[in-house]
Nucleic acid binder design. Structure first.
Length: 387
DNA sequence: AAGGACTCCAACCGCAAACAA
DNA sequence: ATTGTTTGCGGTTGGAGTCCT
């Protein structure tokens, strides 16, 4: 099945197209249609190969091509489709009217891919990068296991290997956590940690709820507004301790994952004190986040939950001060150390960000939220089931 | 102001599937 | 069924434009 390369004949032009060539090509196709691409250039008076003409037409000159920057909706579609289709650019392009596979491919490689890497998301698998999960787990266990000096070395090696993907905030935090172990120091909680100022500004709950809901309308965020919510599905016989015990025994149990509000207990107070009045997490999700950092779970349970929670995982525990509790792991990933990371903030809710939030900044936030919930979509579960 | 580094994207290349004879 | 041709696709490259020092 030989193939004679159509472009190897002498005298055929390569490289950028001139306006005159474009004109000739457009004129010919409008008059005759493209017909056979191989014979087109000769008929149209172009010193180009048919392949080059086809590419120029389909990627640039076609009248139905939409030019200009990608909209949020288009970006959302690309990411969503890529998580299902992979690098099937033509299949993705078929779902985006006016966009070409080449354009989408370029946009993915130059913008989206980099942004995902920045957020610690593997652009191939669309999941949290394993090395970062491992770091998360190690940091957590180092916090609550004073004898894990070998793990501290491991963490430091890991940080070293991650190179440019780790920003100064993460290094500072890791150093701080490893230096000031809560169980090995006798200082008060308030002085135990030396968290960089800009880290304290990160609030994982300032998400774009509208975007989230439009992306995954069947998932309803759980709002914890009252400790005695009458929407509670927690069995009424469960008190604080029993809730914790049940969660400890079987954190993925149906009775817990179906909880939409807290038992009437100090648990909810603790959680709300940590994250504020409006929380997007169910009690079970919140518990899982706390339990995984408190070491209540074994490694399998922990990693399962951390995987499920994805971006939602927060370093929350009664022993961790609020400024750390409010911080999601991914929010520490590589960003210019001179500017606060606004991964979870909108331009209107981020109190300490500059008012001149850029389009790219908004996309960062938008993107992160989409991935947060595209994982849920992948599991085919609703918000209360995915713990 | 200069030039080196970096980014972005149009265009190219090679492969394989689809089609035609 | 076989062989040659066309088309489509995804990865890669080159160079223009921009940024940084």
């Amino acid at each position: 099945m030989g193939k004679t390369p159509c472009c190897e004949k002498d005298g055929l032009k390569k490289g950028p197209w001139t306006p005159e060539e474009d004109e000739k090509l457009i004129g010919y196709i409008q008059k005759h249609g493209h017909g056979r691409w191989r014979t087109l250039p000769k008929n149209a008076g172009l010193k180009r190969c048919g392949k080059s003409c086809r590419l120029r037409w389909s990627n640039y000159l076609r009248p139905d091509i939409k030019r200009g920057r990608f909209s949020f909706e288009e970006e959302e579609t690309i990411i969503q489709l890529h998580s299902v289709l992979g690098n099937k650019w033509s299949a993705i392009a078929a779902r985006l009217p006016g966009r070409t596979d080449n354009e989408i491919k370029n946009y993915w490689n130059t913008h989206i891919r980099k942004r995902l890497l920045k957020m610690g998301i593997d652009p191939v698998t669309h999941t949290q990068r394993l090395d970062l999960l491992e770091l998360s787990s190690l940091l957590s266990s180092s916090l609550y296991n004073p004898s894990s000096s070998h793990q501290q070395i491991h963490v430091q090696n890991l940080l070293g290997n991650m190179g440019p993907l780790v920003n100064q905030n993460l290094l500072n935090l890791a150093t701080t956590l490893l230096s000031y172990h809560p169980k090995t120091t006798s200082t008060s909680t308030s002085t135990r940690f030396n968290v960089p100022q800009n880290v304290q500004e990160i609030n994982p709950l300032n998400v774009h709820q509208n975007q989230f809901q439009s992306f995954q309308p069947n998932v309803q965020p759980c709002t914890i507004s009252s400790t005695t919510s009458n929407t509670s599905t927690v069995p009424s016989y469960l008190n604080d301790t029993q809730f914790m015990q049940l969660a400890k025994m079987d954190p993925l149990s149906e009775s817990l994952t179906s909880c939409t509000s807290w038992p009437d207990s100090s648990l909810s107070n603790m959680w709300q004190n940590s994250v504020g009045e409006q929380a997007l997490f169910t009690p079970a999700e919140s518990y899982a986040a706390m339990a995984s950092t408190n070491g209540y779970l074994d490694s399998t349970q922990s990693s399962s939950i951390v995987n499920s929670l994805s971006e939602n995982q927060a370093f929350v525990s009664s022993e961790v001060p609020n400024n750390i509790a409010n911080m999601s792991f991914s929010s520490l990933l590589s960003t210019p150390s001179s500017s606060p990371h606004n991964l979870y903030s909108s331009s209107t809710t981020y109190a300490n960000s500059k008012n001149t939030t850029t389009h790219e900044d908004e996309r960062d936030s938008f993107c992160s939220n989409m991935f947060l919930y595209s994982d849920i979509a992948n599991y085919g579960l609703n918000g209360n089931e995915f713990v």
